[in-house]
Simulated scan of single mutants.
Amino acid sequence: MAGKRTSPSMASKAAKALDDGRTGRVTKSLAASVLAQTGDNSKTSAKIASLASEVLGNPKSSEIAKSLAASALSQSE
C-alpha cells in the first residue's frame, strides 16, 4: 500500500520551518519528516510519530509544530 503524500502547501510550510533560524530542533525534525514524505511509499517512523504525539499534547507547542506533527501522524501506519 502506498503511503500518503505531503501536500504542496504543507511541504512549503515545512521548507520554511527548516529555513527559519528560530525554528527549534523538534519542529525541524518534524519538518524534515514531512518533506521526506513527498515521494511514494514514505511513512512516518515510530520515533517521529512519538515525537509528533508529544507535540500535539503540549499546549506550549507552536501552531506550525502542531501542523507538522499532524501531517506526520497522518502519514504513519
Rank of each mutant, 00 (worst) to 15 (best):
T27H: 02
S33D: 14
E63W: 07
P8L: 13
T44P: 00
S53N: 12
P59C: 07
S29Y: 04
R22N: 11
A11W: 05
T44S: 05
A46H: 03
K43E: 07
K13H: 13
S74W: 07
A46D: 13
S67W: 07
K16H: 03
I48C: 00
S67L: 13
S33E: 14
S62Q: 10
K13P: 03
K43D: 01
S67Q: 15
S71A: 15
A15H: 13
S42Y: 03
L35I: 05
P59H: 08
S33H: 07
E77I: 08
A49W: 06
A15K: 15
R5D: 00
K47L: 10
K28V: 00
Q37R: 12
S53C: 05
G57Q: 07
L35N: 03
S42N: 06
S50G: 13
Q75K: 15
L68M: 04
G39M: 04
A52V: 01
A46E: 12
S76P: 00
A31S: 10
G3W: 06
P8W: 11
V55W: 08
R5Y: 00
P59L: 05
D19F: 02
A11P: 03
A32W: 10
A11C: 06
N41D: 08
K4A: 12
S29R: 12
A36T: 04
K13D: 14
T6I: 11
S74D: 09
T44M: 02
A11G: 12
R5G: 00
S71W: 02
L35W: 03
G39N: 09
T6N: 08
S29G: 04
K66V: 10
L35P: 00
L73K: 15
L68S: 06
G21Q: 14
K28G: 01
A11Q: 12
E77H: 10
A14R: 07
L30I: 03
A46K: 11
E77L: 11
S29L: 10
S45W: 02
L51Q: 13
S67A: 15
V26D: 09
N58D: 15
T38M: 11
L35Q: 06
E54N: 14
S62Y: 08
K28D: 01
N58C: 05
L73N: 09
S7T: 15
L18F: 00
S50M: 04
S67C: 08
M10Y: 10
D19H: 02
A14M: 11
A11T: 05
A32V: 03
D19M: 07
I64T: 15
A69V: 05
L35G: 00
A36P: 00
K43R: 09
S74E: 10
K43V: 02
M10P: 07
K66G: 13
A52E: 04
E54S: 15
T44A: 02
T38P: 02
A32T: 13
G3M: 01
A32K: 15
A46F: 05
V34F: 06
A2M: 06
K16R: 07
G57K: 12
A2G: 00
E54H: 12
D19V: 01
I48H: 02
